[in-house]
Amino acid sequence: MAELSGVFATAHSPGLTGFPERADPGKRDAVMAAFGEAGKRIADIGPDAIVAVSVEHFTNFFLANLPAFAVVTSKRHLGPVTKEMGEFLRIPQRYYPGAPELARHIYRYALGHEFDPALADGGFDFDENFCVPLRLLDADDSIPVVPIVVNGVNPPYPTPKRCHDFGRMLRGAIESATTARKVVVLATGGLSHWVGMPQAGQINERFDRDFLIRLESGDPGRLTDYDDAVLDAAGNGAHEIRTWLVAAGAAGVGVPFETLAYEPVPEWLTGTAVAAARIGAHQ
């Protein structure tokens, strides 16, 4: 049976790799140091796979068929989706290795435990959602990736509680897997930001810091006590914190997180955070 050895959550702003130089140097250094620390912790664990939970920005899915949750069971994943996006993100296109056996186990386990995610068994491409954080955490693409998608880009969205519950189910799925020994969960997205809206470039620092306090508390009641209006006030991109709620559920009820960095970075258009669950060697 596999061990869930680490749980991390980070921003995936294109600026992190595409235009880091635009940020205030002090903020940039703090964020990059936190990515470095998270990457080191992941390397120390030496996981067989990263279960990466993010949204996807209409790169694959569309309103003709928009899953609330999806599990990607592909053998490999193309990213960034186009050469042009690769240039924008300064990440050359490549194929990321998948972990199809673990992914299929998670999909099957979900269906057996009252969840019904969509299945993507191939042809699923990455945008900044996975490419940006993986570039900073595992630059060699040495760790196979099982992508899981949560709808955070088009309302109505899965509820915060449902996302947290999905994470609790995900932990059970990982711990019952026989095709991996150590697994890391990585959530990406948020915090406050606006995409394609007049407020683009603003940061709702109050929302961000309050969210991180709730995450640090380990209290699922506080962490899932969000309605759409509160999230809307932190931007359409703030709905991506649903991926962090999945991570928190996977970390375990009552397990607090440590904020490795938080910086409001208008030049990257996001409240930029990196956090890790206090489990394993880092309790």
């Binding site: 920005h57 209409f58 880009v153 088009n154 606006w194 995409v195 394609g196 809206m197 007049p198 359409n236």
Partner: peptide, 30 residues
């Protein structure tokens, strides 16, 4: 289109693809 409720992600990405710059897009919205 924004005022009519179109999804902001789809609007913004499309604008860039058909030659409307980021600055021009946000200037329209603001």
């Amino acid at each position: 289109l924004y005022d009519r409720g179109a999804n902001p992600y789809l609007l913004y990405f499309c604008a860039l693809q058909i030659g409307v710059s980021r600055a021009d897009y946000y200037e329209q919205l603001r």
